[in-house]
Write a protein that binds this DNA or RNA. Structure first.
Length: 690
DNA sequence: CTAGGGTTAG
């Protein structure tokens, strides 16, 4: 073999990480006695580096009597690709004090290493070096600089580089567009994409499309997404052979823009499916409330033999959590013990959340305590869980515990926005007024902490619960950020609870102005009027809704029976046991009237159903139907009946459940859109305040 | 020796 042939083969081994072949070629070279050839040694260093054998690469390097730029550069890139960017920078430091000067390739490699070990700490300094040495304007260097800044969120710096580039290649555009997307500035990414399309000689490639599809999906740009989809198809990057990443991005686009049919079409048309595509589509089904379809997809994935990784597991457990399918969830929980990905933090977190959402706080606590690793999300799930169950003090204990520095794996964690929201909401729901203000003021004074509209809404809720409606109103006026619809909805719901029709009218006007297409606002406002006797205003609102073709979201409730979710909509009659359910409910109601004088609270009815008496409408509420089924099939003494409702439980049903718990001597747990209600001996854990 | 892409839990 000639030396050039060996070098050729070495490069192939390097590119494809074929260590065995590389070692054999090394052996051949040694036998030929060519130790001193710089170029060949450089190839050896590169090969060992790319095959993950950085120590051997370093040995070859050290034994070289003379080193050139390439020797240093391949050693540095070896450390970088071997996952040791710090070491790569150290070698670069050594190089700087040697007599060999870095070139554009060295600088590009070192800049890339900076992406992993801190751009501000190291990258900026190397950038200065590029400027001084005159390499800054080299395409390799400027593109890497652009990439480094854009991916670390230093968008301004990145943009500066792009704007002064004399020649912008596709790589430059892609780096900037991708940077905007990772920074969550999707609109700017889309804008830049349009700019790029105006430039001649630059044509989008698969990388551009991947970023742009993600941008469309994040902002829900459905129309633009369709256009990009068409371009992707004509570009030929997604053909019968398929591009997994683009196909995955397309499915995600249609899932996020809530076009399940199209998502399914892309999925079905793809011959090579990976677990990401499955995961994405499962999310699509579950977010549309299609439990069975979502589960069906999961069992198809299971049978397909594709590996079930942590992403899939946490997603599917999340589906069980959303639908509170505890039996299914437990089954998957025990499965996680058998697979390595079961130890993923996100999988553990999804399990805790599942138990929380199913109302099993003890099981959640146990899983939380035995997890090998925890992160902020783990703590937040627990804090939220306690909050929703009205255990404000437990939430506070956890919140304090997580921040305490500790020797072992847990604790010493900084709460983030979501955690802060959880603790405020927990305090508010439990009526811990002082504590809530204490935390809120602390957050206001800490300039590390970001407060969003939702944090402020928690305080509005706190004031509203206490009946301090005027204070809540002026609190909103004095907020440093613009209140959104949710903020006003919080106040409006407080107005309803306290029967303040006047303030309700004022808030309602504001709401209809800024969020006039949301049926929830009309329903809430019309209920306030109805309860205050203002039936004309109520009728006026109903007409407005009709004219705008707005329909109130259907309330639905479900209960898990034999591992299936039995779903009821208000007034449903499809269930085979409908008659028996009604019989049971009537019987219970009769006994309630006799024993504790319960009477139907008609003030909570939505006054929009013709032809049926208000009392009938109430009896048909979906949560009652689900509880009725529970009474029929969950016969065991002492068994807790667990029901879930997509909206908030209404006042009448709330009273009804209290009565049921007395008459049948059972515990009922109802999770609604807002929190948990545990009915026991005629009381509710929410203290009748929700 | 040179740069870039899609999925998860609160």
């Amino acid at each position: 073999m000639k030396v050039w042939e060996i070098r050729e083969l070495l490069r192939i081994c390097s590119k494809n990480s074929i260590l065995k072949g590389g070692i054999r070629l090394h052996g051949v070279l040694v036998k030929m006695g060519l130790k001193s050839d710089v170029v060949t040694n450089n190839d050896l260093i590169d090969m060992y580096g790319k095959c993950g054998k950085t120590e051997v690469a370093n040995q070859v390097f050290e034994r070289m009597p003379e080193k050139n730029v390439v020797s240093w550069t391949v050693l540095i890139s070896g450390y970088l690709y071997g996952g040791n960017p710090r070491k790569a920078l150290k070698v670069f430091d050594r190089m700087c004090s040697s007599d060999v000067r870095p070139n554009e390739f060295t600088l590009s490699t070192v800049l890339k290493a900076c992406c992993f070990v801190g751009v501000v700490e190291n990258g900026v300094q190397i950038h200065g070096l590029c400027t001084k040495s005159g390499y800054e304007s080299y395409p390799v260097v400027s593109n890497t600089l652009l990439h480094m800044y854009s991916r670390s969120g230093l968008i301004k710096e990145a943009r500066k580089i792009l704007d002064v580039m004399p020649v912008k290649s596709l790589i430059s555009w892609n780096a900037m567009i991708g940077g905007y997307v990772t920074a969550g500035r999707e609109r700017e990414a889309l804008f830049l994409f349009r700019e790029m399309q105006k430039v001649l000689n630059v044509v989008a490639d698969e990388f551009t499309y991947a970023s742009i599809l993600k941008a469309c999906s994040c902002v829900g740009a459905f129309r633009e997404g369709l256009q990009v989809h068409a371009s992707v198809m004509t570009s030929g990057y997604v053909s019968s052979s398929g591009n997994e990443i683009l196909t995955g991005a397309l499915i995600d686009l249609y899932v996020k823009t809530r076009n399940l049919a199209e998502a399914k079409k892309v999925f079905d048309g793809c011959s090579l499916r990976n677990e990401i595509m499955w995961t994405t589509l499962i999310i699509g089904y579950s977010q549309e409330g299609l439990v069975m379809e979502s589960m069906d997809l999961f069992s198809r994935l299971w049978r397909s033999g594709i590996s079930i990784d942590g992403f899939v597991l946490s997603t599917v457990i999340g589906v069980f959590a959303d639908f509170s399918m505890i039996e299914q969830g437990k089954q998957l929980h025990s499965y996680t013990h058998k697979v390595p990905s079961g130890d993923d933090v996100s999988v553990g977190n999804s399990i805790i959340d599942m138990y929380i959402k199913c109302g099993l706080t003890d099981e959640a606590e146990q899983k939380f305590r035995e997890m090998p690793r925890r992160n902020v999300v783990s703590w937040t799930v627990m804090i939220n869980g306690h909050g929703k169950h009205g255990n404000g003090h437990s939430a506070i204990n956890l919140f304090e515990e997580m921040q305490k520095p500790k020797e072992d794996k847990s604790g010493g964690l900084q709460p983030d926005e979501v955690t802060n929201l959880a603790i405020l909401s927990a305090c508010s729901h439990s009526g811990l007024v002082e504590e809530c203000w204490k935390y809120f003021t602390a957050m206001q004074h800490d300039n590390q902490t970001k407060l969003t509209v939702e944090h402020y809404a928690c305080m509005v809720d706190l004031l509203g619960r206490a009946g301090k409606l005027k204070e809540a109103r002026s609190f909103i006026s004095n907020m440093p950020i613009t209140p959104n619809a949710g903020t006003w909805q919080t106040l409006l719901s407080a107005c309803r609870i306290h029967g303040d029709v006047d303030l309700g009218r004022e808030v309602g006007d504001i709401l209809l102005n800024i969020d006039g297409d949301n049926p929830v606002n009309y329903v809430m406002l019309s209920n306030i009027h109805a309860e205050g006797g203002g039936f004309e205003e109520c009728a006026r609102l109903r007409k407005m809704m009709k004219r705008k073709r707005l329909k109130k979201q259907g309330g639905c409730s479900w209960i898990e029976v034999e591992k299936r979710a039995e779903v009821f909509y208000g007034g449903d009659k499809w269930h085979p046991l409908t008659e028996k359910i009604h019989e049971v409910l009537k019987e219970v109601e009769r006994r309630m009237k006799e024993e504790n004088g319960y009477s139907c609270e008609v003030r909570f009815a939505m006054h929009d159903v013709d032809g049926e008496s208000k009392e009938d409408v109430l009896r048909m509420h979906s949560e009652k139907l689900a509880v009725g089924l529970g009474l029929l099939v969950c016969g065991r003494e002492g068994e807790v009946i667990r029901v879930y409702k997509n909206l908030r439980i209404c006042g009448d049903c709330h009273e009804f459940m209290k009565g049921v718990s007395v008459v049948v001597k059972r515990v009922l747990v109802i999770r609604d859109a807002n929190r948990f209600h545990r009915f026991e001996n005629g009381n509710c854990s929410c203290g009748d305040y929700w």
